[in-house]
Design a protein around this nucleic acid. Structure first.
Lengths: 226, 226
DNA sequence: CGCAAGATTGAGGTCGTTCAAATAAAGTGG
DNA sequence: CCACTTTATTTGAACGACCTCAATCTTGCG
């Protein structure tokens, strides 16, 4: 696939640029193996233990990566939105499961290609470090949430984060259902639901529909965010 | 400071090699700014918000990195043992507090020096990615612990991890106190104490002293580990 | 419309916390 | 080395936040 002006007319077929990968050199270096692949809701992109021959970038839709305990308990470590890279590994195997949250379009890149190019291109390599570092920072921020925040604080942090990642600052379109939110925040669906209801009762948010949250009182959310 | 044969006679003055940084080139590249600095128990190495001009390597002792919520709740994200690097940042500021757990000796490296060298040395750069990736993997494993494991499972995982990192597989010398374990596992000191006591009652471990744990039944611990 | 899946709500239970007290260990100065 | 203080750890009892189980309500979709 060639990166071309078609990206204007058919953006879903082209790699979305992310901070740190937005110059011409990187775009060539990161040329995907083929055009974007479409996944249906809950379709698996890769499984834990799969050989990590590729990594991925969300074009549109959302992707969840998660781990499972032997008895089925699930911890979602991240939601990946358009532009986000996921599936980069240091070892030979994927350490998570990756699934489409809803319908999603995902580009894949050959890992060996990037490694070869990164070996020759120090700047690209430095940028790859930065991309991984950003994942690390997200993971680290999530640890204090999981370990030390109350249910209400978790929900507040989650909503503010989703708002910051979306287009509109005060209106959040959630790509995932309660199920996924619960497993991301280390809660049950019931507690997620009750917390959202409570915030709505207190007029901190409005819930016009299941997937749509209006942030009415961001100051209150920020106070909960600590 | 020169890397020399003195490292044999006075190892605490020399950079400890870590996997991925153990060849001659890396040793020169990672030449520390000065000899190891010694920190007393609970002494701060850097604070959240400090300019991240250096990063560090533990020579001996242990270091904790942690975040605080506004009301003082603390989440320790990692314990750093001899050989471990910490304090590598993608931005300009440190995102954690770092303190010596007990008495500790720590080497520091100028960040700008490494960045310059990594720009010229693709291999060193690739290894830096790997080092950061290993941190990321640790953080990701810790998320499922914090979000989905019970107190007993958390303690079991912690003990097995400490055992794997230490010299002796069945005898763990803990460098930190209950306080730190609690804030690492997202528990209270009381729950940590009760969980350890319970494992001792069940003869899964023995506690000859506060800081010393003998793993008597690793199979049982692994079962709890998931 | 009718069904299945998702979300909410309620009631009750549980695991981990909180608060309090007792015990043990580690310093400290004589 | 011992008495004394301080700090760390353990233990107990009661509470509470979140979970579990169950029922109801809502939404989405053939």
């Amino acid at each position: 696939m060639q990166i071309s002006a078609d990206c204007q007319s058919a953006p879903h077929l082209c790699p979305i640029v992310v901070r740190g990968f937005d110059d011409a050199a990187s775009r060539v270096a990161l040329q995907p193996t083929r055009s974007a692949r479409r996944f249906v809701k809950d379709e698996q992109i890769y499984a834990e233990g799969d050989r990590a021959g590729s990594f991925y970038q969300v074009v549109w839709g959302a992707v969840r990566t998660y781990k499972l305990l032997s008895d089925g308990r699930r911890q979602i470590d991240a939601f990946h939105l358009p532009g986000d890279l996921f599936g980069i590994e240091s070892g030979e195997e994927h350490r998570f499961f990756a699934e489409a949250v809803g319908e999603a379009s995902v580009l894949s890149f050959r890992r060996r290609t990037l490694e070869a190019l990164a070996g020759a291109d120090a700047e690209l390599s430095r940028r790859l470090v930065m991309a991984v570092m950003r994942s690390l920072e997200r993971a680290q921020d999530h640890m204090i949430l999981l370990g030390r925040k109350s249910a209400l604080e978790k929900i507040a942090t989650f909503l503010l984060d989703m708002a910051a990642r979306g287009k509109n600052d005060n209106s959040v379109e959630l790509p995932m259902q309660r199920n996924d939110i619960a497993d991301y925040l280390g809660l049950t669906i019931e507690t997620v639901s009750r917390s959202l209801t409570q915030l709505e009762r207190e007029s901190v948010i409005a819930l016009p529909s299941n997937r749509h949250v209006e942030l009415r009182n961001k100051a209150a959310l920020r106070r909960l965010n600590s």
